[in-house]
Design a protein around this nucleic acid. Sequence first.
DNA 1: AAATCATTTAAGCAATTGCTTAAATATAAT
DNA 2: ATTATATTTAAGCAATTGCTTAAATGATTT
Lengths: 130, 130
Amino acid sequence: MIYYLWFMEEENNCIRKEADLNQIKRCRQQIFEAEEVVSTLTDKLSLVSNTTRLKILYVLQAEERLCVCDLSDILNMTIPAVSQHLRKLKDRDFVKAEKEGQTIFYSLRDDHRELLAPFFNLLNHQPETI
Amino acid sequence: MIYYLWFMEEENNCIRKEADLNQIKRCRQQIFEAEEVVSTLTDKLSLVSNTTRLKILYVLQAEERLCVCDLSDILNMTIPAVSQHLRKLKDRDFVKAEKEGQTIFYSLRDDHRELLAPFFNLLNHQPETI
DNA sequence: AAATCATTTAAGCAATTGCTTAAATATAAT
DNA sequence: ATTATATTTAAGCAATTGCTTAAATGATTT
């Protein structure tokens, strides 16, 4: 497997006299190494950065489990709208679904508790500033 | 100032026999109280959940300051593209700009260090799983 | 003063998002 | 079997996002 290390080779375009070429290379390498974690992280954050989905996660944290119909009531939203959000959360392993008769109960998975913890903390303690 | 407490009054639409009306009211109130924090938080997270902007924040954390031209080189992106991201980050107080001649240096502000800390930790330690 | 450099701003556009309504699925009750 | 219930899926659409290119701004050098 051959990796092309563009951050080492590529010509610099920043033509400032004072430009620190070593700094630029260092930053390129830093980003190159973090690339995958950046993708994984932003993928998850873009899920959480939606008010409806954050609210869903927040109430699920407190309530153990809720069905689509409950959430539709709680959020004052259409059932399909809620369902579509839940699907995204399920696809990314934020929640799990358990069928009981014709009702499907959703609950928080443990997978992302660490990522979510600071957000739940903020929401629970309602500080003046974030 | 009169607040209409819809979460107390409003009719329930979830018609399941087993629906726990108290649970639904409790959740509504919980969300009602967190509403503002939810907005503020998702507003910030939606900034961070973009790979380019997270990378900018990440390298700025390590490098103290970088100019638009540097970042354009580092990220292998057009100058206007970077500039537009920086504007968003500046508008939300994630970064500050300092002019020095015709060069504008951007650096991290302290305002959101607490929010960003866990993300920087992940990026620095490159764990197998997030 | 004119040209160069660093950056921003603006207009345009393709891709994505998040809703809506309507139809499909699947389980339960009559 | 038929109807009702709970949910999902799909199609359509307006709003937002993030880029591109071109033009504008403002400081520096010649």
